[in-house]
Structures are given as C-alpha cells and as structure tokens.
Computed example of a mutant assay.
Amino acid sequence: MARLARLCIPGHPHLVQQRGHNGQPVFLDEADTQGFLRLLADGAKASGVAVHAYGLAADEVHLLATPAAADSLSRLMQALGRQHGQAFNRRHARSGSLWDGRFRAVPIDGKQHLLAAMRYVESAAPDLLASSAAHHLGQAVDHAVSDHPLYWALGNTPFDREMKYRAWFEQGTSSAEADRFRRAVTQGWPLGERAFIDDLSQLTSRRLAARPRGRPPKAPL
C-alpha cells in the first residue's frame, strides 16, 4: 500500500515530531542542543516557518509551527536534519544516519487546541533537555520562537500573558490530552472538529480521515 502523503496546510499550526534512528540520542550535551536551536532559529526564517513552541528530548524533537507555504516544513526539517546530523557526527566522531526516517507533521485547529498544544510540546517528555517554556513564562527571550496571535491574546502586556500562561502551564497536560496529540501526530490525521476538517478539505485533495475498517457495504440490487 502506498504511503499517505504528509499533510501540510499553509497558515495553520502543525504538530511536528522527529525521532532519532532506532531511538538513539540526537542530543548528547548542551552544545548539541544549543547548536540545534541556532539552526532552528535561522532555518525557520529562511524556510518561512513560524515556530510557536519546541521541546527537545534526548532522542526526539517536538515542534508547534505554522508554515507559510506547502513546502515550508519540509524545507525546514530537511535543513535541520542535514545540518544537525553533520554537526553531531563531526562532534561525536560517528557516521551514518542520525534520524529515524521522515518527520511526522499534522495540522491542528489553532482556535481549539493552540494553547494546549504549546503546553504539550513544552512538556512532551519527562526528560526534556530544552524547551520554549522559559520564553512563554517570561524567564528568557528565545529568538527561535515566533509567538502565535492566540498567545498574545492572553493579555495586553507581557506580564499579563506570562502570568496567564504560567497558570495554564502549571495545570499540566492530562494523559488523555497527551494521548490525543500523540495519536494525531503519529497517525497523521488533522486534529479538530468537523467544521475544521471540512475547511481543510477545500485546501487539499489528500484524504483527511481513516477509512472505515472492513469491507464496504454491498450496493442494493
């Protein structure tokens, strides 16, 4: 069966995930993570991707990002994969592929899931080495991050936004919510209500939901 094409809809936020080959680490030290974040900041600008949140675990990368064009995410992730892979292999005297195949990405309904997706990405793994949480909590300025308008809508001042996001962030991601996001990005089906899916169907010819299991019903005689 042919592999379903990756779905990338310009102007909509996407959950993005990329893992290390066979679960191997893609970050071994602070130099690795900081080098990747510099590449992310530069690559996002060059490829037309607004990165709203990120979380880096030892063996995987999570992003919440909005592409400006249909190929923007692919351009960003291919550049990151190549450049970080080369730097990692050079620093740690290794060779071969660093990443586990192609990255995964899925559009989400920002109006419904944006803030929850930010929280998920910034706490997607218990052993995160780096995330954009400090930026949204007012603890640092992160040049890799482009704040989404829905984050800005939390308050009229940076202090208001940071305090409201802190209260939201500290509630934590429930296991059900984490499973919903994890399943969406793994399966590749858009995450949102029926109206959102219907809107997306006007923008792409790709199938947007799994086919029902079993044989189709027979047509009446």
Rank of each mutant, 00 (worst) to 15 (best):
Q24D: 12
G81Q: 05
A50T: 01
G188W: 13
L114C: 05
H12W: 13
A124F: 13
W189N: 03
A209T: 14
F181E: 12
R183L: 14
V185Y: 01
R19Y: 07
D71W: 01
S74R: 12
L221D: 11
G188A: 11
H143A: 15
E60L: 03
L15A: 08
D147P: 10
R75F: 00
A209W: 07
V16D: 00
R183I: 10
G172A: 12
S205M: 07
A65M: 04
D71Q: 14
I197E: 09
R38K: 12
R213L: 14
K45T: 11
V26L: 03
S146Y: 00
M77A: 04
S146G: 01
G48L: 11
L64D: 03
D32M: 04
A93K: 02
A46L: 13
A133H: 08
L221I: 04
W189M: 06
D142K: 12
P126D: 11
R183W: 00
L200A: 10
H148K: 04
A153R: 13
G101R: 09
G188V: 11
R94W: 05
D199M: 10
A79C: 05
V51S: 05
L128K: 12
Q187P: 00
H52E: 02
L37W: 06
V185F: 01
H52R: 01
F103D: 06
V106M: 07
V121G: 11
V26S: 06
